[in-house]
């Protein structure tokens, strides 16, 4: 079972397909869960604390806005843990503020720089593309399984 980082990290379809074909999806829910199940100090509304942007310093420099560093404190550990990655090119659903946009850019850059198996594709727009989309992901994940057992 390989830990596969999914981008967009909140993707339902990627999360489902990775789990369906026998691997562990690494998405934002994993780090959010860890975050909210850890005792500490309450800092409404989303349990982000002053420590998070400091943790993010490991992946983003100090002059980078705290919003990006805060987000990286959630995604950074997952990227480090990841053994493979599936990236959707320019997903509309990850459109957001500049904090989100820059975090997404940094995230994709880190995944592309990391020496791990990577699949890049885009969302399907027809049934035929749906077949290709699923086939590409299945083949990628099957190959990971073969590499793991080899």
């Amino acid at each position: 079972m390989v830990k596969v980082f999914i981008y967009p990290a909140t993707s339902l379809m990627l999360s489902d397909l990775v789990a369906r074909y026998g691997h562990t999806p690494l998405g934002s829910a994993v780090s959010i869960r860890e975050h909210i199940q850890t005792p500490g100090f309450d800092s409404p509304p989303l349990q982000m604390t002053a420590e998070d942007p400091q943790k993010g310093l490991k992946w983003a420099a100090v002059e980078v806005p705290s919003g990006i560093r805060g987000r990286m404190s959630l995604y950074g550990p997952l990227v480090e843990e990841a053994e493979a990655a599936i990236i959707i090119d320019e997903p509309e659903l990850s459109f957001g503020c500049m904090g989100c946009a820059r975090t997404n850019e940094l995230l994709c850059f880190m995944l592309r720089e990391k020496d791990i198996p990577r699949l890049e594709l885009r969302y399907p727009a027809s049934r035929e593309e749906g077949v290709t989309f699923v086939a590409q992901i299945k083949k990628f994940l099957d190959d990971l399984k073969k590499e793991e057992t080899a």
């Binding site: 397909l17 659903l93 969302y123 399907p124 027809s126 049934r127 077949v131 290709t132 699923v134 299945k138």
Partner: peptide, 23 residues
Amino acid sequence: LGHEFEMKMARYISYGLEAVDKM
């Protein structure tokens, strides 16, 4: 919003899953 966006393509992916399963 992300779920809404992705559920629009659920039918394509369902079709793909069924087709790939028989391949």
